[in-house]
Amino acid sequence: MTLEQAEKMVESVPLPKAKDDIILEILLRFPVKSLLRCKSVCKSWRSLISNPLFIKSHLKLSSTNIAHHRLIFTYNKEKNLRTCPLDDIVFEKSVVNSLDQVCPSDGRWKSGYAFPLKIIGSCNGLVCIVFFRSEGNILFIWNPSTKISTRLYSTFDMSPPPAGKENVVYGFAYDKATDDYKIVAVSLCDQNKVIMYSLKTRNWKQIGDFPNGYPVNMSGVFSNGFLHWMATPTPREYNEPIYLCTIVSLDLDNKTHGEVSQPMYDEDGKVGTLGALGEWLCVLCDYRVTCADLWVMKVYGVEDSWTRLASITYPADISSPYYDWPLFIGKDGTILLHSGWNLVVCNTNDGSFSNIKKFGRCTTNATIFVESLVSPYPQNSPGSTFCSL
Score class of each variant (00 low, 15 high):
C42A: 09
E92P: 00
E166N: 12
P14V: 14
D324T: 13
Y174T: 00
W295P: 03
S40Q: 08
F54W: 06
G360P: 05
F359H: 02
T334M: 13
N203G: 00
L188E: 04
I242M: 14
S40W: 11
A231L: 04
V374T: 09
C346L: 10
P263N: 03
E11Y: 10
T234A: 09
A316M: 12
T364W: 13
R288Y: 12
D350A: 04
V96R: 09
A276P: 00
P116W: 06
S62W: 09
S111F: 12
P326S: 04
W280C: 15
L15W: 15
R133L: 08
V130R: 01
L244W: 05
Y214W: 15
L227Y: 03
T155I: 13
I356N: 01
Y174W: 03
L35T: 03
K205F: 01
D286I: 03
G125Q: 08
T307P: 04
I247F: 00
I26P: 06
A173N: 01
V194Q: 07
L36Q: 11
C38V: 06
K79V: 08
D179K: 05
G258R: 00
V13P: 06
W109G: 06
Q379K: 15
V184L: 09
Y265F: 13
D350G: 04
S223E: 10
F353C: 09
H257G: 02
R202M: 05
I129W: 02
V194L: 07
C38E: 03
P14L: 13
W45L: 09
I368A: 01
S219T: 10
T290E: 15
V221H: 00
H228A: 06
S249C: 11
E4P: 01
Y265D: 10
S122E: 05
A67L: 14
I138F: 04
L59H: 03
F73N: 06
